[in-house]
Amino acid sequence: MSEATSTTAASSAARQSSVFKLTFRLPIIIWQSLFFIGPLCFMVAMSFFIVRNYRMQEDFVMKNWLKMLGRDYFWDSYVLTWGLAGIGTVVTMLVAFPAAYTLAFKASEAVRRWAIFMLIIPFFTSYLVRIFSWYVILAESGVINAGLSYLGLGPFVMLNTKFGTVVGYMTLTLPLVIILQTFALANIDRSLVEAAFNLGCRPFRTIYRVILPMARTGLIIAAVFCFILSFGDFVSPYYLGGSKPPTLPILIVDTVKSGQQWPRAAVVAVVMMVTLFVVAFAGIMAAYRRRVG
């Protein structure tokens, strides 16, 4: 009798506990499969669909791939996107470094906390409006040129140039890169840096020989994030870079917004994803590679 009650109690307790557990697991798995994995898989599949009479039909043909990859303008876009994102990343990393260095090594704990507090803010505020603001600032009769004209300089053409695009990228990436670099540098054992100075190592040499190698993992991760964000951004190259020739993201926007050629846009998107995956993978390998010697 007591045996029986105890087993039913046991199984009901076990059942309640697994209901509880699954309540936190199943809905998430279903939701994310349906609305995250689903769309991405469908997009890959869509790159093999066909468009007939302005209607997309499910199919499995290589036509879109051959069409896109066979065109010069696609490859021009590809190279351009790489180039812009690459330049953007190098410039952002270089511009951010002295700032992160100051925050990590020179600033007090309170200043560092405040700076990071401030740097988080733009990350969550409208990127679009900030880009539009740059448009006005950088224009031929904009704030900067107006200011320079008092000095008898200019006007300089900054809009619709690669410079404009990179300024746009930096609007997106600079705060994040400074934060990541600051964390990477702040994690370095300070006594090692001081030891290098005491041994007569000059500042730039110390940065190059001691600080950079020790902060490598964090710095590479910052660069990878910066590259991914720049590579996928269509606003800066569109509004500040003039969109001609288009970058890959602009190609997607144009293809989708000007008709039903979604499968071709999907081809571009898949190429972008593969590229970013390879970059991220290479970055992670480089970041966590054991140092030799």
Binding site: S2, T7, A9, A10, A13, S17
Partner: peptide, 8 residues
């Protein structure tokens, strides 16, 4: 005297 193993 009561087996408690399965009592939550």
């Amino acid at each position: 005297g009561r087996v408690m193993n399965d009592v939550p």
